[in-house]
Design a protein around this nucleic acid. Sequence first.
RNA 1: GGUCCCAUCGUCUAGUGGCCCAGGACACCGGCCUCUCACGUCGGAAACAGGGGUUCGAGUCCCCUUGGGACCGCCA
Length: 472
Amino acid sequence: MDEVRVRFAPSPTGYLHIGGARTALFNWLFARHHGGVFILRIEDTDRSRSTEEYINAIVDGMRWLGLDWDEGPYRQTERMEIYQSYLQRLIDEGKAYYCYCTPEELEQRRQEAIKVGKTPKYDGRCRELNNPPAGRTPAVRFRMPEAGQTIVDDLIHGKVAYPNEMFDDFIIMRSDGTPTYNFVVVVDDVDMRITHVIRGDDHLNNTPKQIHIYNALGFQIPKFAHLPMILGSDKTRLSKRHGATSVQAYREMGYLPEALLNYLARLGWSYGDQEIFTKEELIEKFSLEGVSKAAAVFNPDKLLWLNGQHLKNTPTEKLCELVKPFLQKEGLIESDQQVDHQWLRKAVESQKERAKTLVELAKVMRYYFVEEIEYEEDAKKKFLNEKTLPYLVDLLEELKRLEQFTEQTLQEVFSSIINKYGIKLKQLAQPVRVAVTGGTKSPGIFEVLEIVGRDRIIKRIQKAIDTIRESS
RNA sequence: GGUCCCAUCGUCUAGUGGCCCAGGACACCGGCCUCUCACGUCGGAAACAGGGGUUCGAGUCCCCUUGGGACCGCCA
């Protein structure tokens, strides 16, 4: 195979969303797998809806996901002369023509057609126009064949045949002089020597039109691969109604890029029974053969699980850095604060298997950072009471005498109290857990105590004792 | 309405004519592990949309029906 060249071509009319990211990912994986070139191209010919802000958001999203591009970002608005020259060629050769109908007229005819149950279709009235009406700036239409059929040979769907009667002469240049999608996409893909057009299958029905443009311009047709759509839980096209859909939103919710990538890859693609992939494995194992034809429903639960898996597999060292912004958001550290690195490592290590997102991770670390903890009402009632009071009193005494607070020495202290009262570890551990963390859930109690540290442990147990005495 | 695409557990999927009374994963339920919670682990419930063919044999091939989706724009 010659060098593979693929592109991701979003239109900047919104943030980078899940569907776009998946298309980008498949293109990127295909390029990386084949040692090819991945191009980012911004399709901003719709000036009224494209914004600079969205372009930045898309670029940021791609960077965060780690989908690096080799060329671009190209912008179509910067390539107008190129389109213009091809357009002129089509007009000169009679393959395109000026249309003087106004959008209002067209809309009106469309509505009428729909009303009588006919296919809304341009009637071709300007096709052979000799005396154009004065005072109107025309659009340009592409002349489509009226009979026969057009075959799209798709890598995922196979050969798809379209009867040509269903097509009308579509507009390739607006009356304001800007070219439209179906024309521009062809010119760009040819100009950028794209070998494989990999995109959502909502574009499948546009492909025959594009094929005729390729032919009219005498270009070679690239390979097409139309990816299945991503649906919401109600099986309709994924949209805001289904919850978070922008890549940025997942970033803020504490998802890891590699988890999102892994999830997106498995949506519409599979490799036997494997669920968890590193980025490198994805590149190694990806192929269009493994892509399915059927649309897939986006399942946030599975993404969450996968994120937990990736979180667990992330080196603690790296997790420490990743969680810092989230600790800041929780108000647990200041942006310029120096946190003892060894200590943070232990803290993160103790919680990493318990959190499914960075947000969760930061939240469960609260009692490691704050001075004063608050009790959960149920936990307090159940574990801080007359019955547990003597254990806590004894523990406090012993801890005050203890110099070195390590898991080892703490364990010894706990043992002596358990023996003295003839109780199980849980009967002591739970009250202590509530006293130190405020709740009933945490990593191993000795681990937690070591991380919280001597001074705060003593303070918190004292407070628990006071609390019990006050309420009795 | 026209055209096109698609169809295995609730969801993501394995399955490319016999290895499938259908396998894995998420979620769900139960057991184990255990100082709690997670992690882990073991087990359970759960699907070939329906109907016709083809074939010795069909989840797998063909047709129809049904259901879902996409496109039909001076949006991309």
